[in-house]
């Protein structure tokens, strides 16, 4: 299996250096083995969609990439920097990797603008004026510049999630991680967030996105990764994975997803 995986991975963008490299990553929660020999190469500019049943370790995998969780075995490299206990390296990585959460996690006591400028000012040491201009630029890109002075609690879920995307982008990351960004949203708000993500993908951003939105995956993904029980079971282009599933597990999962929609 790993042979085919490597083949697909390297065929995507052969010449570009890998933005993210996971090599035989293992992780346990106590006795629970949640990641089993997970290996994945993501090239610069590549868009990867991760799907799989609940509890399969999707969140855990992408949270290991910016070390919100620590892995116990294997190697994770981001932009060539290996994740370890080295604090300096971690700071460098987190600066380059933006993350969007299922539950938005905006800072409720700060305005939308302050949410977006906090990290650029204190982490990137950007002057306040410049950070605010940058924040307004991204808030305009996600089409909510008029909400800048409001607090997160005054916005709808879809608007909050777009702010969360803008907030991450304000750090000018090279890589964006999305953990089910639309699954806490009402159906009518899912589209506005997905549209934002599609336009982000069009800018050539490297993205790893955990989602069950098949339409989105078909539209933007270079590769779809299917995980089950802590393993990467199948991986390939959206057409390969969705049209010609190889394993029973993927077939079962796809039938459940389709029934659900």
């Amino acid at each position: 299996m790993s042979e085919t995986l490597d083949h697909v991975a390297s065929s995507a963008r052969t010449d570009a250096p890998p933005a993210i490299l996971l090599d035989k990553v293992n992780k346990w929660y106590g006795a629970l083995h949640v990641l089993r020999d997970v290996s994945l190469n993501v090239a610069l500019g590549e868009r990867v969609v991760v799907c799989g049943p609940s509890g399969s370790g999707k969140s855990t995998m992408i949270r290991c990439i910016n070390r919100l969780e620590t892995h116990q075995e294997g190697v994770i490299k981001v932009n060539g920097i290996e994740l370890s206990d080295d604090v300096k390296a971690l700071d460098d990585i987190r600066r380059e990797v933006g993350m969007v959460f299922q539950s938005f996690n905006l800072f409720p006591h700060l305005t939308i603008l302050e949410n977006c400028t906090l990290a650029p000012i204190w982490v990137r040491r950007m002057p306040k004026k410049e950070a605010e201009a940058l924040a307004m630029e991204y808030l305009t890109k996600v089409r909510i510049p008029e909400q800048a002075k409001k607090y997160p609690g005054q916005l709808s879920g879809g608007q909050q999630q777009r702010v969360a995307i803008a907030r991450a982008l304000c750090m000018k990351p090279k890589i964006m991680l999305f953990d089910e960004p639309t699954s806490a949203l009402d159906p009518e708000m899912i589209k506005e967030v997905l549209d934002t993500m599609v336009s982000l993908a069009e800018t050539g951003m490297t993205m790893i996105c955990v989602t069950h939105e098949m339409g989105f995956a078909r539209q933007v993904a270079d590769r779809v990764v299917f995980m089950d029980r802590g393993e990467i079971v199948e991986m390939g282009t959206p057409t390969q994975v969705f049209e010609t599933p190889q394993t029973e597990r993927l077939k079962l999962f796809l039938s459940q997803i389709l029934r659900g929609h």
Partner: peptide
């Protein structure tokens, strides 16, 4: 909520 800590970490705040 734990998410507040995580969001701050993910942004690279010290």
């Amino acid at each position: 909520p734990k998410g507040q800590y995580e969001a701050a970490d993910a942004l690279g705040l010290s």
